[in-house]
Design a binder for these strands. Structure first.
Length: 528
RNA sequence: GUCAGAGUAGCUCAGUGGUAGAGCAGAGGACUCAUAAGCCUUUGGUCGGGAGUUCAAAUCUCCCCUCUGGCACCA
């Protein structure tokens, strides 16, 4: 099992539309967790991607008169471009039209079919010709009718293949009861327990006849059908992790070693796709495939970004947030900082443009950027940028600053291990505020005027530079580019094998020469 | 309808039985190394509404209101 390497995945996004802020948040959370774990000395593998199959893609492509693959590719490119803008560094890219993925899906389906886990049955129900789908009671309006949005609704019979989901529900109930950490945060786990108790377990329809849907993976035991959604999209978590790589060798280049990665430490998903897809179908699928209880993945369920005032962001309300626009104004790191600091992992948050302006101006430009700038400038002005590490002076102000930074690695680690990125950032920013207070209380500009205070001035300047270096290390998972630029201005590089949890005061060597300071986060012109 | 979550200062949120908190915004002040930044002080709240339990409730119980998500053939 994957004890050495942490395996972090995200949901794969549906390529029917362009990425929005919710997509960006989820991928960013995965990126930040992965980067942090690496900085703590662990190996980590970050998988994300796109779900390219499905009826909506087929329909949208038909509307435009282009092949489905071309339509999916075009939207896929939008996601790839956005993730580049946001500065994501993922190790694996799960695009469901990948030949290896398709082959693995088919092998899994054949195996389950041979084991009598999949059977054929006829479903009779109400069918919307316009939407090309069967309707359930949920689609009925308040009068109990199917509204005009469904067009002509007729009764129809259709043959399909079904997966024996219901057979495994008792196992899942027991598994969930025995593994309270299956879902994070805990209240989502309660939701799952209640859902399992209440719902009637029925089997899962896993195909569509080709007459209705062609844009999918053909099932191996009946060429008249394609698999749809579940045994396609969910399988990405293992097919792109190298599952069955030794037996299925269609296109295995670049795939990781499954035994090293699995089980996933965190499937990062939104609260909307937890039940039933990720918390019911997926563990049962794995169980049916022969995965043991200790080989089950863990779910990390995040909330939604809402509008100011809590209304949801949606196309129809015209209040969608385009990540690219915010990146253009605040930089990738500006948006990354806001998204990570303004949401408590697992809960909903309101996306607020005046808050992101304030966060940029106060937290980034003021507290952090200005602090670096004033620190470098004073060293340059008073000591020609030359640091003296062991000057013969110490006092409570110095000690307080050192204590704050010496305690930071453990504090950050505790929060990051619980995925509470916003608390980790808060801890780091408390130390930055302390640095600014330290400058005021030490008043280097006064020390510089008094030759008797020379040693003290050296220690103050060293403390500031050292603090900035350590801060650069700690913010790197959330703001990698800013971290790099701070170190560049400090004219310093950390040893590649330095672990976040091993950081101790005194990393900058005696006699180190600092670089030139330039604003990290320039003041922004007010919006019109 | 039902399950879960949320409702606390202008804003964003901590706070699960013991005198209501933080950051930001607002107000006042001192300083000058710095991006008019940063520092110090400070105004501000019937804790969604109602009832109950308790010596004591933001916190526990019940009812109600508003918002978010799920409810098993959307992904």
């Amino acid at each position: 099992m994957g004890q050495d390497t942490l395996f972090i995945t995200t949901a794969i996004d549906y390529t029917n539309s362009a990425p929005h802020i919710g997509h960006a948040y989820e991928k960013l959370l995965a990126d930040v967790i992965t980067r942090y774990q690496r900085s703590a000395g662990k190996k980590a593998y970050f998988l994300t991607g796109v779900d390219q199959h499905g009826q909506k893609v087929q329909q949208s492509a038909e509307l435009e008169g282009i092949p489905a693959q071309e339509f999916a590719d075009r939207n896929t490119a939008k996601f790839v471009e956005m993730w580049k803008l946001l500065g994501l560094e993922y190790n694996g890219w799960a695009a469901t039209t990948h030949p290896q993925h398709k082959a693995v899906v088919q092998v899994i389906l054949q195996k389950l079919f041979d084991q009598d886990q999949i059977y054929k049955a006829t479903h009779t129900g109400y069918y919307s010709v316009r939407q090309e789908q069967f309707l359930t009671d949920k689609e009925r309006n308040e009068e109990g009718e199917f509204g005009s949005e469904w067009g002509e609704v007729e009764e129809r019979k259709e043959e399909n293949y079904y997966f024996k989901l219901s057979e495994h529900v008792p196992w899942l109930k027991a598994f969930v009861a025995d593994h309270p950490d299956f879902v994070y945060p805990a209240f989502r786990g309660k939701e799952l327990v209640n859902a399992l108790d209440k719902a009637d377990a029925i089997d899962l329809c896993i195909t569509r006849p080709k007459s209705r849907l062609e844009w999918g993976i053909e099932i191996p035991f009946d060429t008249g059908f394609v698999t749809f959604v579940w045994f396609d999209a969910l399988i990405n978590y293992i097919s792109f992790a190298g599952y069955l790589k030794d037996q299925v060798q269609v296109a295995t280049e670049g795939l990781p070693d499954f035994a090293e990665l699995w089980p996933a430490n965190a499937h990062i998903i939104g609260k909307d796709i937890m039940i039933p897809a990720h918390a019911v179908y997926w563990p049962i699928m794995l169980h049916a495939m022969g995965f043991a209880d200790e080989e089950m993945p863990k779910l990390l369920v995040h909330g939604f970004w809402n509008d100011k005032g809590g209304a949801k962001l949606s196309k129809s309300l015209g209040n969608v947030i385009d990540p690219a626009e915010r990146i253009e104004r605040f930089g990738a790191d500006g948006l990354r900082y806001y998204l990570m600091s303004a949401m408590a992992t697992g809960k909903d948050a309101d996306f607020n443009d005046s808050r992101i302006e304030e966060a940029y101006a106060h937290d980034l430009a003021g507290n952090l950027g200005n602090l670096l700038n004033r620190s470098l400038n004073m060293s340059k002005r008073y000591r020609a940028s030359l640091l003296k590490k062991d000057a013969d002076y110490d006092d409570d102000l110095n000690r307080e600053l050192r204590d704050s930074f010496n305690k930071l690695p453990a504090a950050v680690a505790a929060h990051m291990e619980n995925y509470q990125v916003h608390f980790a950032l808060e801890e780091i920013w408390k130390s930055l505020t302390l640095c600014n207070q330290f400058v005021e209380h030490s008043a280097p500009w006064k020390l510089a005027k008094d030759e008797a205070e020379a040693n003290r001035l050296d220690t103050v300047l060293y403390h500031l530079a050292e603090a900035m270096a350590q801060a650069a290390f700690h913010i790197a998972p959330v703001m990698p580019e800013t971290s790099r630029r701070i170190l560049e201005q400090l004219n310093f590089e950390f040893p590649a094998d330095l672990k976040a949890t091993d950081i101790k005061w005194g990393i900058l060597p005696d006699g180190h020469t600092l670089g030139e300071g330039t604003p990290l986060f320039p003041r922004l012109e007010p919006l019109p």
